[in-house]
Design a protein around this nucleic acid. Sequence first.
DNA 1: GAAGAAAGGTTTGCGGTACAAACCGGAGGT
DNA 2: ACCTCCGGTTTGTACCGCAAACCTTTCTTC
Lengths: 108, 108
Amino acid sequence: MGTPFEDMAEIDRLVHEPSRLAITSALLSCESADFLFLQRITGLSKGNLSSHLSKLEKGGIVTVTKSTGGRPRTTIGLTPMGRDTVAQHWERLTRLRDAAREWTAPGE
Amino acid sequence: MGTPFEDMAEIDRLVHEPSRLAITSALLSCESADFLFLQRITGLSKGNLSSHLSKLEKGGIVTVTKSTGGRPRTTIGLTPMGRDTVAQHWERLTRLRDAAREWTAPGE
DNA sequence: GAAGAAAGGTTTGCGGTACAAACCGGAGGT
DNA sequence: ACCTCCGGTTTGTACCGCAAACCTTTCTTC
C-alpha cells in the first residue's frame, strides 16, 4: 500500500459509483433486502437498480435470488467477499480523508 | 435533504471520481500545490492529471495558474467554492457510512 | 375463463467520461 | 546550432450510467 492518495488509483469503481455505494452500504447492515426496498431507499428507477445489481452480481459483490411461485420477488444480499470489498473501500476512503486532514504540503 | 442513501444521487461526480477526490482532498490541507507535486502524490500520468485539472477548473473547483518566464510552472489551488464543495462531499460520504452502520432493515 | 391492468424486472440507445498514448513547444545542455 | 528532455495538452477509443421502451408473469373483474 502506498499513500492514501496513490491508493485511490486502486479503488474499486464497481463499488465506488454513487448508486452502488448506497446499495452496498445499505446491505452492509442487514442480511438481505428485497428489490423494492432497495429501490425505495435509493430512489433509483427499476431499470437502473436492476442494471446496477447485475453489475454487482457479475462482480461477485452481491447475490441476487428470485423467488419461484407467486409474485416475483427478488432478494439481494452481499457475498462474504462483497462484504470485505465494501468494508475495505470505506477504509480507503476514510484513510484518504484522514490523510487530507492531517497533512500539510511538504517543502512549503 | 433525504436519507443518506437517496442523497447519493446528488453527489458531485466531478469531485467523486477517485483521482479527483485524491487531488481535491490533498488540496484541502494546503494553500496550493504545483503540478509535479500533485503528480507525485497521486501517481497519475501527466496527461491524465492535466485533464482532471482542466475539468476541475472548468467546474470552478480549482484555479490553475501558470508562471510566465523561465521553465513553465503550474500552481493549483482550491477556489473558496471548491473548498465548500469538497467539504460537503465528505460530509455526505460520512453520513452514508454512518447511516449504514446504525441502520437495520425496517419491516423485517 | 378471458381481457385488462399492473407489478416486477430487463434491454436498448445515447451522450458522456477516463485512460493511454501520441503530440507539442520551449529551456538547458553541449 | 542542434539535441534532448521537462512540462504539459490533445486525441482516440473503449467503457459506463441513465432514461425510456420493452417484456413477462400475476392479480382483478366481469
